[in-house]
Amino acid sequence: MSETFRNSVKMMVQETFEGPPVPVKGSWFTNSEPNSGIFGVIEGISCDQASMSVHGTTLAAHIDHIRYHMWGTNEILKKGKQPEMDWGKSWDIHSVDEQQWNLIQEGLRNEYLTLLESFDVIEWNELLSNEVLSSLAHSAYHLGAIRQMVKVVKA
């Protein structure tokens, strides 16, 4: 993979989680204000809000599902093959206390940082490129869902 393309993908992943770079001069696909990525959108969300059911799911479940997906991506990048995964179980979270909510957010941040670090050290090929791009699309999709859910839980 060319360095230019790798850096572009890395920038898009960063925008998904951190929002556009500061100072903000626009964004590629998130809102252009600071903290419009996943981490900023869920900042200040309480464990009670993260546990509120919105159309049968919770913010806690969405965030943990993204973490789980990123863990799978990171495993593929490390080992070159898909780990055994239980996608249904990744949605099992219905309520969290403050400690659980903090652990879910910390786990997501750790998987995100692991992903960013791997961009510079893996030997890129078609499988890994597809995995990283699908992880980007998956996370961006959930960013949109999370933004809508936050409107409900904050109402």
Rank of each mutant, 00 (worst) to 15 (best):
K79S: 13
N102R: 14
T16M: 00
H69Y: 15
K78T: 11
E98G: 09
T4C: 00
D48H: 14
T30Q: 02
T114L: 06
T4L: 06
K151R: 15
V24M: 11
L77P: 00
F29Y: 15
E43A: 14
P34E: 05
A137P: 02
Q14H: 09
S32Q: 09
N110K: 15
S46V: 11
W71I: 06
A61Q: 06
F39M: 06
V41Q: 03
L116N: 07
L115D: 00
L143G: 01
G80Y: 14
A145W: 03
L108K: 08
S129E: 15
K79E: 15
F17T: 04
E131W: 07
M12E: 00
K151P: 05
V13P: 00
E33A: 07
H55I: 13
T57V: 09
P34I: 03
R147L: 02
W101I: 07
I104T: 03
E15T: 00
M85T: 10
G44V: 05
L143S: 02
H65W: 05
G144N: 06
S51P: 10
Q49G: 11
V153I: 09
G40F: 08
I63L: 14
G19V: 01
M85I: 09
H94K: 15
K89T: 07
T57Q: 07
I45R: 01
S135E: 02
N110I: 14
A137G: 10
P83W: 13
I45V: 13
S27L: 07
V96P: 03
E106K: 13
N102E: 14
A145R: 04
V96A: 08
L115Q: 00
I104S: 04
E33S: 11
L116V: 03
D92P: 08
E123L: 12
H69T: 12
D92L: 13
H142R: 04
D120R: 02
I76G: 01
E75D: 11
M85N: 08
K25P: 02
N102I: 09
K151I: 09
S129A: 14
H65Y: 09
F119I: 02
I45E: 00
M12S: 04
D86Q: 04
I76R: 04
G40V: 06
D48Y: 14
N110L: 15
K154L: 12
P21M: 10
L143V: 05
K78I: 09
I146C: 06
D48F: 13
P34N: 04
E33I: 10
N74D: 08
S2L: 08
G40W: 08
S95R: 11
E3W: 01
N130H: 12
G40S: 08
K89Y: 12
E84Y: 12
F5G: 00
G37E: 05
S32L: 02
N35G: 06
